[in-house]
């Protein structure tokens, strides 16, 4: 900056001091900052570790579970009587069920289904929700009214009943569970994304982009999406827990996964008869549901705090 009046000596010192002030602080990105904040949140880290552990166990199950714990679905009629409903022991840490299958083995294979339903159904909901939310928020006017009223209608029905009704039409089965939970979950995601976009759109930098002649596509991709995606990441994470719960509820009611495929919901349903005598049959899958859903909720909570731009200076 040039100056019209002569400044006495010392100006250089000013600039040097400024340069020093800046070189001292390392450059940080917003996502990097968020990660640092997330790491400081012990509950969120615990949730994340639990989820990662579950995923590793579920994915690698085929490599070691059948050898050590046996097959999750097949039953051996010759030994069934002697193996039925054994209490937890070293050989069967979670005990065995009515048909003599290892409960731990079935919980592990059940995790595969639960995690898959949680992630895939949420992916479907998020995809539909993102498109709908973006259409409503960006176009506004009549689009906004139609899409959001449509979403309101969806939200006006009890969610689980709606899913059951849909499964009654398309029939039970694992793929149909994905589809039903996924397709019916979009309205809340669309709402969250729409309001995120609307608040980001208010920012001057969106106007600045328009003022420099940026196309709509560029504005959405470069400016609106990166700044509104944080809320979706948070919401989707929490939604996975919700989807897992819904799947368990459906299977419990016999509308979801078809036996003999292991599902936590089916296991609880099977075990409820023996709650007084052999409680592990019900408690073990129950704990699996509880910890998994809790882990996703804690991680989502932590992400929300970490991704909040307003907290960047904290």
């Amino acid at each position: 900056m040039s100056d019209n009046t002569t400044q006495p000596a010392g100006e250089q010192a000013v600039e040097q001091a400024q340069a020093k002030e800046f070189s001292a602080a390392p450059s940080r990105t917003l996502w990097g900052d968020a990660f640092q904040r997330l790491r400081r949140n012990k509950l969120a880290v615990a949730g994340a570790i639990w989820i990662i552990l579950m995923v590793i166990i579920a994915i690698s199950a085929d490599l070691w579970v059948p050898q050590t714990l046996g097959n999750p679905t097949q039953t051996d009629s010759t030994t069934m009587a002697s193996m039925s409903r054994l209490p937890p022991s070293l050989e069967h840490p979670f005990g065995t069920d009515t048909l003599g299958r290892d409960v731990l083995c079935r919980v592990i294979y059940g995790a595969r289904i639960s995690l898959a339903v949680g992630v895939l159904a949420t992916a479907i909901s998020t995809l539909i929700g993102l498109v709908m939310g973006a259409l409503a928020a960006y176009n506004g006017g009549i689009w906004d009214t139609i899409i959001m009223r449509f979403a309101d209608i969806f939200l006006a029905f009890p969610y689980t009943l709606f899913v059951i009704a849909m499964l009654a039409v398309i029939g039970p089965g694992i793929q149909n569970v994905f589809i039903a939970i996924g397709v019916l979950g979009w309205p809340s995601i669309a709402r969250v994304f729409r309001s995120a976009i609307l608040s980001v759109k208010e920012n001057d930098y969106v106007d600045a982009a328009r003022a420099m002649g940026a196309s709509d596509a560029r504005i959405i991709v470069r400016h609106i999406f990166p700044n509104s995606v944080a809320s979706i990441v948070v919401y989707a994470t929490m939604n996975i827990g919700g989807a897992i719960l819904t799947e368990s509820a459906l299977s419990f009611l016999g509308m979801g996964v078809v036996p003999p495929d292991p599902s936590w919901g089916i296991m609880i349903q099977d075990g409820q008869t023996y709650l007084a005598t052999q409680p592990w049959l019900m408690i073990m899958p129950g704990i699996a549901i509880l910890t998994t859903v809790l882990a996703f909720t804690l991680l989502g909570d932590g992400l929300r705090d970490a991704l909040d731009v307003k907290m960047k200076d904290a």
Binding site: P8, A13, V14, A17, Q18
Partner: peptide, 12 residues
């Protein structure tokens, strides 16, 4: 002193 045009070593 970092912004003062008259700052001397004493000031800093």
């Amino acid at each position: 002193s970092p912004r003062c045009p008259y700052a001397t070593d004493l000031c800093r």
